[in-house]
């Protein structure tokens, strides 16, 4: 089982966390066209390779965080801290590897 490094609790068995899937930015709900909104709701890159994804430390500290995982090798990159990096808004602040 994958060890997922929660930024607060440290590495934990993946089963102790909740997987939240591919992150994607939320369009402005008052401006988005149906096409854009439904692209946000339904369409996914689903890459065979590096994927930015959300995790939730549901059985621990309850932190939502994102990390990057390679969907073909299982490799992980440094998790991102909550607050300055948020799921649903994959904005880089320059600290990621």
């Amino acid at each position: 089982m994958l060890l997922v490094p929660c930024p607060v609790c440290g590495p934990k068995n993946a089963a102790e966390l909740t997987y939240r899937g591919e992150t994607h930015s939320r369009p402005d709900p008052n401006q988005a066209t149906p096409e854009e909104w439904r692209s946000y709701l339904y369409l996914r890159d689903n890459p065979a390779g590096w994927l930015r994804e959300g995790w939730f430390c549901s059985s621990g500290c309850r932190t939502f965080f994102t990390l990057e995982r390679n969907t073909t090798t299982g490799e992980l990159r440094e998790p991102l801290l909550p607050g300055n990096k948020v799921a649903g808004r994959p904005i880089s602040d320059g600290t990621e590897p």
Binding site: E22, S39, L43, R44, D45, N46, P47, T71
Partner: peptide, 18 residues
Amino acid sequence: GWASTIASMAGVRLPITT
């Protein structure tokens, strides 16, 4: 399993996660 990968080769995005 590779539907998204093949579709992306044609520039088509799918509502799929694998």
